Measured scan of single mutants.
Amino acid sequence: NQESVVAAVLIPINTALTVGMMTTRVVSPTGAPAEDIPRLISMQVNQVVPMGTTLMPDMVKGYAP
């Protein structure tokens, strides 16, 4: 099972992602793949992402898996 990126903390809208904001988990439906964490760092979210929420590609500005 592939791990997806999950918010480790509450991420406010327009916040640039840091490694400490993200964790990985096997979830369904799958979100952004765990191996993309290095690409996701410094990208901004376009909505509030509550802690424990799977990071879906459409939540991150300019990100395409």
Results as ranks from 00 to 15, higher is better:
16 A>P: 14
7 A>E: 03
60 V>M: 02
6 V>R: 01
26 V>R: 10
9 V>E: 11
7 A>C: 07
59 M>C: 03
17 L>T: 06
7 A>V: 08
46 N>R: 08
62 G>F: 06
11 I>F: 01
45 V>W: 03
7 A>W: 07
5 V>F: 04
14 N>I: 08
18 T>C: 09
34 A>N: 04
26 V>W: 11
61 K>Q: 11
28 S>R: 09
42 S>K: 07
61 K>L: 11
54 T>A: 04
49 V>R: 00
19 V>G: 09
36 D>E: 06
17 L>E: 05
22 M>F: 00
37 I>S: 03
16 A>T: 12
31 G>R: 03
53 T>F: 11
7 A>S: 03
52 G>M: 05
18 T>M: 08
58 D>E: 14
22 M>P: 08
63 Y>F: 06
27 V>H: 02
25 R>M: 10
41 I>F: 00
16 A>Y: 15
65 P>R: 10
38 P>Q: 10
6 V>Y: 00
20 G>I: 10
11 I>N: 00
10 L>N: 14
40 L>W: 01
11 I>W: 00
21 M>E: 08
44 Q>T: 14
29 P>A: 02
15 T>Q: 05
21 M>H: 08
31 G>L: 03
34 A>W: 07
46 N>C: 10
4 S>L: 07
20 G>K: 14
61 K>N: 14
31 G>V: 01
1 N>F: 12
38 P>D: 09
50 P>I: 09
50 P>H: 12
51 M>C: 11
36 D>Y: 04
45 V>G: 01
29 P>I: 06
54 T>N: 04
28 S>V: 13
61 K>F: 13
40 L>D: 02
53 T>K: 11
26 V>K: 12
35 E>H: 14
55 L>E: 00
63 Y>G: 03
41 I>M: 00
24 T>S: 14
61 K>C: 13
21 M>R: 03
13 I>L: 12
60 V>N: 01
40 L>F: 04
32 A>E: 05
49 V>Q: 03
16 A>E: 11
64 A>R: 14
46 N>L: 10
9 V>I: 12
48 V>S: 14
31 G>C: 05
60 V>Y: 00
60 V>F: 06
25 R>E: 09
8 A>N: 05
35 E>V: 12
11 I>R: 00
48 V>L: 13
